[in-house]
Design a protein around this nucleic acid. Structure first.
Lengths: 131, 131
DNA sequence: CAGAATCCTTCACGATACTG
DNA sequence: CAGTATCGTGAAGGATTCTG
């Protein structure tokens, strides 16, 4: 039982990184990949590879254009996704995971697995039939 | 490259579980352990074991009483922490991780590890000296 | 000591319209 | 097609006070 300052997540002192404030790297991680949309965007890019803006939009029916743009820009700023603009008319913009973006996939997979166990615990009937 | 409906996170259809709505189990997971405080609370209970309300409060200087109470209640409702009220005056309430609560620790550890790599990438100097 | 109750602020997220 | 630019809303989070 080590002191909180010695835990693997880092110290309990306030840190800053590129305007972000956090007390442990778990918080930092959540600031980068947390929120309502980022995990889904990252997951789709992982499963489907390079995608155009419109393809992502179509695959996520209830995200607004504004939110998709915003989240992609933030992910890009954090080096999680790459953005490639083809100089054409009409414009074509393709997004893909960077190596850094790929590196969070194991976390998302674990979260998936844990979520499934949680489903089983609280709604065993629903899950057994494979919803 | 499988269709999105076949991804390990579950289908792309809207699911509900105890009032929660989500499209994949990653979202479900984030609803249970996401947010500003829950990861920290879970992590502290993991590192320090059974803790009283006041001990948790003291260890997290900038959380308000209201938020700590609220987050603990939600974690309790999800079966992540146990709450034991000792019938004394003044009252003594002890919180601890349940087995289900312990089961998220591997995720938090991975998030910690990833956050440290992210720190290195964007602020290599600061991290090498062991901040 | 461990909260409950109340009021207040912020901001993530969304709806809509417009554009190179 | 892939965006901006506004405007608006609700929920998350916070400050303060009161209590068994």
């Amino acid at each position: 039982m080590s002191a909180i300052e010695e835990r693997p997540g880092g110290a309990c002192t306030l840190k800053t990184l590129g305007g972000r404030e956090y007390y442990c790297t778990i918080e930092l991680c959540l600031q980068v990949i947390g929120g309502k949309w980022k995990p889904i965007i990252l997951w789709r890019l992982h499963m489907e590879g390079v995608r155009r803006f419109g393809e992502l939009k179509k695959a996520m029916p209830n995200i607004t254009q504004k939110m998709l743009t915003q989240q992609l820009r933030e992910l890009e700023a954090d080096g999680m996704v790459s953005r490639h603009v083809h100089p054409e008319v009409p414009p074509r913009v393709e997004y893909a995971l960077t190596p850094l973006g790929e590196s969070v996939i194991p976390i998302l997979e674990r979260m998936c697995g844990w979520g499934r166990e949680f489903e089983k615990r609280f709604a065993p009937d629903e899950c057994v039939v494979g919803f």
